[in-house]
Design a protein around this nucleic acid. Structure first.
Lengths: 189, 189
DNA sequence: TAGTTTGCCTAAAGGTATTAGGTAAAAGGT
DNA sequence: ACCTTTTACCTAATACCTTTAGGCAAACTA
């Protein structure tokens, strides 16, 4: 019999595609085995278990997101960088809802740090270079930006803004305007 | 044999407790049946299926959260109201992580509206009465506040801020300061 | 080409979800 | 108090997902 050529990476890739198609919680070892037309037990030579597989999908998504973020930040500064970076998050979540959900998985801190975890924080700090914020306010601002990006995108994905006027399409740029104004005028402690 | 006295409400309540103990994704029909010392199939007389059970847990959590929010807003205005409301979200998520995760479940819009969905939006609008925002900026601000609260709380729950200085304990009030400043100084379109 | 490694297989056990149909307890009328 | 009806929980069965153990043949390696 001809071999399917499985690797942990190809499984994670297939899992990411499946997640975008049917939702991250529908990603199962069995479904991926079907996709490769292979028996379920065969996957266990490549991934430790279901959790391991999902973690790999999450890391793949975080990596992709960080790559897009880095590309968006290149050659931009200030509000321009802020908007570009914010749009990366939003667009990625819209294009790849399953991957985005995967990226929100609670990861072992050590695993997350080894992956793209640190890049995201560094990029957010890079945006803040265009504003005049000293520590510890810079860290507070990093956390605020992360919260807004993640919060908005996940509320939007959950349908929290649908069926209400005005169109979320209008809200997003206004939120970026607001964040820019806030960062230029950060209140003193 | 003596009857266990199951009802949909008691199942949802037990599911909420279980979610806080072991995580919302570990809440299963089987686990709840065990908790009542009853056979799994017995639950299907009270809830339609697993999805139905989880939806009830989500609605229960949203209701509790809305009740706490309403209590916090009573007699407060302006920044005071903003801070109290924000703390409700954060404290609830810390005390009841499983319930909070349940509340983030993607619900059928009709179901959500019938439940406490609308109350949350109305309460956020009530906070904004203390600031001078006309439509459509008020809606944009409602969405921003929702994004920050949800985003911060869920990043914190996911461990996103742990192992980094300064302590998230310090960041939260500074974020509220920042939001207050932003709402008092909302940028024009 | 022989030996070793490795990739995928079969087999099996255990957990969860769900449906169909049965029995006994509770509730309600006379 | 008895009979009927409803209701609560049960047994049994099916189907799917996860995971482990052990086998065979394909692919490297000398």
């Amino acid at each position: 019999m001809v071999r399917a050529g499985l690797t942990a990476e190809r499984l994670a890739q297939a899992g990411a595609e499946l997640a975008d198609e049917v939702g991250f919680d529908q990603v199962t070892v069995s479904a991926i085995a079907r996709r490769f037309d292979v028996k379920v037990a065969s996957l266990y030579s490549h991934v430790k278990n279901s959790q391991d597989l999902k973690t790999r999908i999450a890391l793949l998504a975080l990596e992709e997101l960080a790559d897009r973020g880095a590309a968006a930040l290149a050659g931009r500064a200030g509000k321009d960088a802020l908007a570009a970076f914010a749009n990366v998050y939003r667009d990625y979540a819209r294009e790849h809802p399953g991957r985005y959900a995967a990226a929100q998985m609670r990861l072992d801190p050590a695993v997350a740090a080894a992956g793209a975890g640190g890049r995201h924080a560094r990029m957010t700090r890079a945006i803040l270079r265009g504003y005049d914020l000293a520590e510890p306010d810079q860290t507070h601002a990093v956390r605020l930006l992360g919260s807004v990006f993640h919060g908005y995108v996940s509320l939007e994905a959950a349908g929290g803004f649908s069926h209400s006027a005005p169109d979320p399409q209008e809200t997003w740029p206004r939120i970026i305007d607001a964040l820019d104004a806030l960062l230029r005028n950060w209140p003193a402690a």
